[in-house]
Design a protein around this nucleic acid. Structure first.
Lengths: 192, 192
DNA sequence: AGCTTTACCTATAGTACTATAGACAACGGA
DNA sequence: TCCGTTGTCTATAGTACTATAGGTAAAGCT
């Protein structure tokens, strides 16, 4: 139901997808969709909510769980990428189409997102405070980097030869931890 | 002209934008647009082409120019982010709407992109070969990381308090070079 | 058996959007 | 002065899309 909407929205974009397209996937008539959704916008909200809801919950568990900051960052990356494996349509629809939600719905979704971001920011912040990560690391920029990097994978996930789920996770964790950790020697200056 | 189309496509998405919307920005009638563009799709191609064309050219200059691999990566990041400053609409429209191009146009645009990606990949590859970057760095994944990170900035560029252009560039170069460089001690193992 | 709910259906009102046809006014050059 | 070009206009054909109204058949409940 919602999965069909996610599939169609991911493939053609919210405005590019018609309610007919969704109905076709479900093999019902276009008008029958309105038995399940109040409107096309409501369908989009259902998809986006499904696409984002779990992130904050699982991130909170990681934040509160045991492990070093590095461990937690690794776990955050793992859980962030996990939905791409089986629910890529939801991820893509959420990332690309949430901006077309009507204002109140967008605010609801955005609130969940912000909660998620703040958890990541706090984990990174703790890593900085404990000396595990570089003192000159900016927690906000690091958070945006983690999310940006993670989300960008959705754009080519499954279409990049050789990039298995495991390899993606491993590289991302590796890249981010190297970028975050305090290893003494900073890279030398670079030219503008 | 093309800038107006870019603005509207960036703001509302290709399918969400009507030719009327573009005409409104230009303060002409909807039908008058067809004096400049053969179709709405042609307008999108013009925007996307404008959004991507220069990347490959400038990247090639950097690749062929002087400097260490690290210098070149830094320069690549600088030039990748440069268009966001003044032409964010083109960047956003290109990133998000190019997939709605009709097939032949999408292939043309994709060819330019691929050329660009390969240049980056080669610069990173040389850095690995020369020992400047880690031997276990995967040039393809590193390229995708650089692009993913760079492109993700477009999504919040100008709306993230405190993130000036200079600070973004600096953090990104810093993060990527730390992630790429060979610094001896790798981060310790992390738990799945 | 009789009523209610569920999960559809057909038909269509109403709107919005792309693209074409053809007119026109201003201007620049021959 | 006449003509072609440029940039715009009005009007509209043709299509597609969302959402509503109201019907129906089967299944479940009492």
């Amino acid at each position: 139901m919602v999965a069909a909407a996610a599939k169609v929205f991911a493939a053609r974009g919210y405005h590019g997808a018609s309610t007919q397209d969704i109905a076709d996937v479900l093999r019902i008539r276009q008008a029958s969709l309105y038995y399940y959704f109040e409107s096309k916008e409501a369908a989009l909200e259902a998809v986006c909510a499904d696409g984002v809801e779990d992130y904050a919950v699982r991130a909170l568990a990681i934040q509160r769980g045991p492990g070093s900051a590095a461990d937690k960052v690794a776990q955050l990356v793992v859980q962030h990428l996990a939905p791409m494996r089986e629910r890529l349509d939801f991820t893509l629809a959420f990332l690309r189409e949430r901006r077309f939600l009507p204002d109140p719905a967008r605010k609801r979704i955005r609130a969940i997102e912000r909660r998620y971001e703040r958890i990541i920011e706090r984990v990174i912040g703790k890593g900085i405070a404990s000396g595990e990560f570089r003192a000159d690391l900016d927690a906000r920029m690091a958070t945006l980097a983690l999310l940006g990097l993670g989300n960008s994978a959705a754009l080519w996930y499954g279409r990049e030869p050789g990039a298995t789920h495991e390899r993606i996770v491993e590289s991302y964790v590796d890249l981010l931890l190297r970028a975050f950790r305090d290893v003494g020697a900073p890279p030398r200056a670079w030219a503008h």
